[in-house]
């Protein structure tokens, strides 16, 4: 098992754990924690896809061409964006959770039965 398989496997397991937490909890704050863990796992998988063994970070040290000594830089640029947007989504979820608590007095989703018929 190489480092790449280890990182990818860990990322997938984190996605599964986060989704399980988001699906079975009743408290809104714990659901949001589950989503955060799943997002971290997804970013880990994306970086692991771009990793080539025995190569170094994509930062040039001189103008010499280094196309055979660096890892793939494109997934890193994409994951940078994904992390920042993940924070934005978490902030929105938390603002809505706060509003629900202010309106209903509880954070338990089984007690929010306004739309049930």
């Amino acid at each position: 098992m190489t480092l790449l398989n280890l990182a990818m496997g860990t990322g997938f397991i984190l996605i599964l754990i986060g989704l399980f937490g988001a699906l079975t909890q009743r408290d809104i704050l714990r659901m949001i924690v589950g989503f955060t863990i799943a997002a971290t796992g997804t970013n880990l998988v994306l970086i692991a896809v771009g990793f080539l063994p025995n190569r170094t970070a994509p930062i040039l040290e001189s103008t010499a061409p280094m196309a055979d000594a660096i890892v793939d830089p494109v997934p890193q640029a994409l994951v940078l964006t994904a992390i920042v947007i993940g924070l934005g989504v978490t902030a929105l979820m938390l603002a809505f959770a706060y509003k629900i608590h202010a309106a209903k007095g509880t954070l338990d989703i089984s007690k929010l039965t306004d739309l049930k018929w």
Binding site: P58, I59, L60, E61, T63, P65, M66, A67, I70, D72, P73, V74, Q76, A77, L80
Partner: peptide, 18 residues
């Protein structure tokens, strides 16, 4: 990725490819 690695210094002059 090979395109970015080869053309970063020529086109942009930056050292950090990301």
């Amino acid at each position: 990725a090979q395109f970015y690695a080869a053309r970063t210094v020529v086109d942009t002059g930056a050292a950090n490819i990301v």
